[in-house]
Design a protein around this nucleic acid. Structure first.
Lengths: 195, 195
DNA sequence: GTCTATAGAAAGATAGAC
DNA sequence: GTCTATCTTTCTATAGAC
């Protein structure tokens, strides 16, 4: 409870969050100490409490910001007409957005269990909201007879798991370009839903 | 360096590993204390060091055992003739085996970063070995003209991510039976590889 | 806004009694 | 083989100087 957000520096605050993000993604929330974060920023451990009430809130704010950004970015995304175009837009968007933020994604998927129950409920709701966007596309395509999907919820989870999996192996400047990866995954998804 | 494996109790040792497995899966390696593990087993913290030299080795042995069991179980699995039958066997095997060991799977996928570099190298090699079994099936099917896969390595990673994702949402006794889940996923994979 | 200093709790691991 | 007791280190978070 050292401070309220926004009442201090506009420079060090973001640096603290950036350092925490990098370290949480690399070593896991529980394995990172406040001293490590402070050292990365170049301040003393005690100074961190000017920018966050505690370690838990630091994690929670990182995850909440990430989920809100995903949702906002998908809202802004050009989606085209009809379920097929929208599904392609979703697949490409998901891969592109997630590859641009590997640390955020890692934290969002790995540190759910590090959240307090109250904070977990907030993040889980946002995540569900995002999944529902995909499920709505699949349901619309199924209703139109464009897709052949036995279970839209299961297909939603399967597709998201597949797309998010890109982050575990993709390396910028590697064998495949981001555009080529997007296209191959989109083709697999398109065939998987029977389109 | 408290002991060598097998030189003490045959009862408490497995109980320690089982308790560690449960707690590591639930809270993450770094967040679990030796005292918690001891309490779960019903012994004092110091007694754990009769069954493992340290906490890191406890994690490593859990992961190594799991990976070796996956590989051994796939060797024993009836696979049928030809790439299509083998791919179906792999998909069903992967889902079934992983759903039977949710804690092991969670640890194997989440705690790679908690391993020392030496231990990580061992586990990574075993994991790669398993992925190669799937890639070999895909490559054979591609060579036979049965599958249409632009990149077998990418398809391998995509399929494994999709199949393993079942563990994040499947609940025994839920809306869908394990057999039905296996069949739906297999159909998605079959279509995704263009068979 | 950042520092030093430290309180207070808890961690991993070990020693030695029984 | 398990206990109690403890060493040593490290942690989160706070207090108060500047």
């Amino acid at each position: 409870m050292a401070r309220k957000t926004g009442s201090h520096s506009e420079i060090t605050g973001p640096l603290v969050r950036k350092a925490a993000q990098r370290l949480f993604a690399r070593k896991g929330f529980a394995a990172v100490t406040m001293r490590e974060i402070a050292a990365e920023v170049g301040v003393q451990a005690g100074a961190l409490y000017l920018y966050t009430p505690d370690k838990q809130t630091l994690l929670f704010e990182l995850m909440r910001t990430h989920m809100q950004e995903v949702l906002a970015a998908w809202e802004r995304e050009p989606k085209g007409e009809g379920p097929l175009k929208r599904l392609e837009a979703f697949c490409r968007f998901h891969i592109r957005f997630h590859l641009e933020r590997p640390d955020d994604v890692f934290i969002a998927y790995m540190e759910l269990r590090s959240l307090t129950p109250e904070n977990f409920a907030v993040i889980e709701k946002l995540r569900h909201e995002y999944e529902d966007h995909l499920e709505a596309i699949l349901a619309a395509g199924q209703a139109d007879g464009i897709f052949r999907i036995p279970d839209t919820r299961l297909a939603t989870m399967a597709i998201i798991a597949m797309l998010t999996g890109v982050n575990t192996w993709f390396r910028e400047g590697g064998r495949l370009s981001r555009e080529r990866v997007e296209r191959i995954y989109w083709n697999m998804v398109r065939r998987a839903v029977g389109a």
